[in-house]
């Protein structure tokens, strides 16, 4: 992923990386450090943009969004751990647009799995998996570990 992203970052020094809480922030932090980006890593809490409020209510707390860099006209690298249905990314993009109007968004995920429900695909991904519908992918950091288990 670092290799794929490096040319983009070199081409645009104003590039802003944003991780989706909480897994995307972990992956984002690792990439941000490896790529040596000048702008601080943004963090998005997409709880308020989820489309499942009517079934599960307000999601548990993961801390507020932190986007200190102005994003108008910027190239954004949006980072998440796992891309499956695409709903999280949809919510994240909605939230980003409430902060400003980026010139471009590149989506980078550690794992792209099947189960897409929206026309959203990663531009950059570490792994691609075809999994059972009931499977659940969980990321842990230190050490990095992808755990595949049964969905609760």
């Amino acid at each position: 992923m670092q290799q794929q992203l490096a040319p983009l970052c070199e081409a645009d020094p104003g590039i802003v990386m944003i991780g989706i809480k909480t897994g995307g922030v972990l992956v984002g932090a690792a990439l941000h450090e490896a790529l040596g980006l000048a702008t601080p890593l943004g963090e998005l809490n997409i709880s308020f943009y989820r489309d499942d409020f009517s079934t599960v209510g307000l999601h548990p707390v993961v801390g507020p969004s932190q986007l200190t860099t102005p994003i108008d006209g910027k190239h954004i690298v949006l980072v998440d751990d796992v891309l499956s249905t695409g709903r999280t990314v949809r919510a994240a993009m909605n939230e980003i647009f409430d902060y400003g109007r980026p010139s471009r968004i590149t989506l980078a995920v550690l794992v792209q799995r099947d189960g897409h429900e929206l026309p959203i695909r990663a531009d950059v991904f570490g792994e691609s998996m075809n999994l059972d519908e009931s499977a659940h992918v969980q990321l842990t950091a230190n050490p990095w570990f992808i755990e595949i288990g049964e969905r609760a």
Partner: peptide, 23 residues
């Protein structure tokens, strides 16, 4: 505590250009 934690998340919304969320 849960109410205060949720409020903490909402504090950042007021600092943005667009101050509302679609919840």
């Amino acid at each position: 505590t849960a109410i205060m934690d949720a409020a903490e998340n909402f504090t950042s919304v007021g600092d943005r250009m667009i101050k509302n969320v679609p919840l």
